[in-house]
Design a protein around this nucleic acid. Structure first.
Lengths: 116, 116
DNA sequence: CTAACGTACAACCAAATGGTTGTAGATCAG
DNA sequence: CTGATCTACAACCATTTGGTTGTACGTTAG
């Protein structure tokens, strides 16, 4: 089982911010399936190489992607662990919501036996 | 079972962007457990009422929170469905990653029977 | 060696973000 | 009615963001 990484607020900020852009999400999608160099990726989008380079940097700082040198290229790979970390965070929110549901259930149970 | 909402790129942008701020995440946490007025929330943070109001607006546009008038107050409640929508999106990414794993497995299987 | 390719990085710009203050409209309490 | 409270919204400001262009440097191909 993957250990539930303890991410700081700033890291969580970076993680969700990195996911809040369609181009970056597409880069994550691609590199989860197939590794690609930065210029491979740049050819996929209607923007300059430098712009794509910046998106990859944002993803790398968020931990969603790793960049490994290979000759003159930098090979980009998606990091499934960070995806799972994000899922774990969202799971926590859902668990919190259950508290509300359980409290409402308790209230309804009390209504079955109202005090006079 | 909750239907898998079909979110546009712009909606997903808004969803993750709304989550990319510690104050907003805290508002979501609180309002998932207990409903609260905007000024209830404002008292929790070291910033002006107007700033908190803006954060709530961002969360509302992202669908992570609903705002319901009650007298002069606006009651804020967390929306677990949007949390689940975000989880569903991340699940998709994890599924993509499995494609890579399966392809690697296939490659290894080929290596068991190398051609001469 | 030379030319082409892949990357890194700085400088610049318009637009969006996250905060502030200030004003004004509803609603509630006394 | 009057005053306090809760909200809405505009205007403003500093910083960040997402894009551009341009320059420089290492690596590969011919």
């Amino acid at each position: 089982m993957v250990v539930d990484q303890q991410l700081s607020d700033a890291e969580v900020d970076r993680l969700f911010h990195a996911l809040a852009d369609a181009t970056r999400r597409d880069i994550v999608r691609r590199t989860l399936v197939t590794e690609a160099s930065v210029s491979d990726l740049a050819r996929c989008y209607a923007m300059t190489f430098a712009a794509v380079q910046k998106h990859v940097a944002v993803l790398e700082e968020a931990g969603l992607v790793t960049k490994q040198p290979r000759g003159r290229e930098r090979i980009v790979r998606g990091n499934p662990d960070r995806i799972r970390a994000a899922q774990a965070l969202l799971d926590d929110y859902e668990q919190l919501w259950r508290v509300r549901v359980e409290r409402l259930d308790a209230l309804l149970a009390d209504d079955d036996h109202p005090s006079p």
